[in-house]
Design a binder for these strands. Structure first.
Lengths: 249, 249
DNA sequence: CCAGATTCCTGACGGAATGTCAATAAATTG
DNA sequence: CAATTTATTGACATTCCGTCAGGAATCTGG
């Protein structure tokens, strides 16, 4: 009874572990050599299996990339959800989500590139539908947690939206600010402009400016959000922040 | 004397025109079928020349893509520079640059994708250095015009930067907001969230909110920037705005 | 108008990568 | 332990990028 069960698990676990190994490798190759440098043959070789076996895990190169993206996207959603539990004012909780986004983009620099390749048209149709759905679900979860905090702010009176403004607009504004900044980091960091070469400080500052523009209390002129940000790293993401170099080890 | 000259020009002009034809085709194929769907063989076939001839214009597929991007990037810089000449307050002129960005992203939806592919590492080294430089120069020109307007605002007192803030930070903030929004349009527009499906209204609103956050006078609560935006389309970009569907034909 | 020089064009070819599949090996089950 | 199901292999078809030797077209000086 036990022996065959164990044997079953043994094989199945070997397969599951190999899948993670492949994902790790693909992630590293993507980051190092880009989409074109990611070769299915090389992955098979380095993992020590034949190409056919790799294709039993993932139906195409794009599908493998999507699987890499799904793994990090899940982590992002978890980071966001943990951030939203930060005990503080609504605006501090929003800042915590910003800190989570910072962490994510620092710890998983490959993710943006993976997502860009996947969604670049004519790649999507070669991806398992479930994986495609998983990716969307992760984004939904992130949007959901963020809009939840924004809704709390509206309910508590910290944030008074003007006519025509919506929680979605606030959420999309922050989202765009962040993704834009990390796109810049990936594409234009060689330009010799201080705020471009190192976009993180400007990003943190600009997100505060945006929230000030919405009139989300307490305004950044009335409160020290920089120390709140550090507290988030210390209290909610101690290990992650150290791994990202945002806190001293 | 005249005949040979004319023949020379005839040949050279044919070559120049062919280059534009190739660029047009590559641009269309990129937009329609994505990077993978852009095939050098198909381009050669559709233009009616051999592949070797295409490779005499562009040293690689990435180089061709870069040439496509250079052409649109130049147009963007010109749009920005024209926008900066708008007669109005400093903040209206900044809004004019935003309107130019809107136009650009509407009229050249391929550009972002081209730039993303090019800059995705391991592609850059297969591009002619001059073309690479041209691309950077265009971005510099855009940053330069934008920061120029911001500097004017500081000089005139419309914008009072707080300690630690810089004109570059303001510029990068707007830049990120816009590129983030257009990245979202390209990657996530299928998500069923209103502000995501149609990101333009939220983008225009959020850029005003950001400038309000910086305290750039006159604040959007004190002035009708929506009609200023329409005036920019009418007075500075009449033909372009009609082509983009942002003004009635 | 012509011959020699130069520039331009061609398409077959090498090389590399993706994805398939029939044959083979391993694992599971009764 | 035999039968069946599942997993693995690696050669193969296909596609695409980029090259290059040979040939066509164009230019130039007389």
């Amino acid at each position: 009874m036990l022996a065959p069960m164990r044997t079953v698990s043994a094989k199945q676990q070997e397969i599951r572990e190999r899948e993670q190994t492949i994902l790790d490798l693909a992630q590293a190759m993507l980051l190092e050599r880009g989409y074109l440098g990611l070769s299915m043959d090389r992955i098979a070789e380095e993992v020590g299996v034949s190409k056919g076996t790799v294709y039993q895990h993932f139906v195409s190169k794009e599908d493998l990339l999507a699987a890499v993206a799904v793994r990090s996207a899940n982590t992002r959603a978890e980071l966001f959800e943990r951030a939203a539990t930060f005990r503080g004012t609504t605006r501090e909780r929003m800042g915590a989500i910003g800190a989570a986004a910072e962490l994510f983009f620092t710890l998983f620099p490959h993710h943006e590139q993976a997502e860009r390749v996947i969604k670049s048209s004519s790649g999507s149709e070669k991806i398992t539908p479930e994986r495609s759905l998983s990716l969307d679900t992760c984004v939904f979860r992130c949007f959901g947690t963020a809009t939840g905090v924004i809704r709390d702010a509206v309910a508590s009176g910290d944030l008074a939206l003007r006519p025509g403004q919506s929680v979605e607009q606030v959420c999309v504004g922050l989202w765009n600010l962040y993704t834009g900044a990390f796109l810049m980091r990936d594409l234009e960091s060689h330009l010799n402009i201080p705020a471009v070469t190192d976009p993180m400080p400007a990003l943190v500052a600009n997100s505060q400016v945006l929230l000030d523009g919405f009139g989300w209390r307490a305004l950044s002129t009335e409160h020290d959000y920089e120390s709140a940000r550090l507290r988030v790293f210390e209290e909610v993401f101690p290990t992650e922040a150290k791994a990202a170099g945002l806190l001293p080890a």
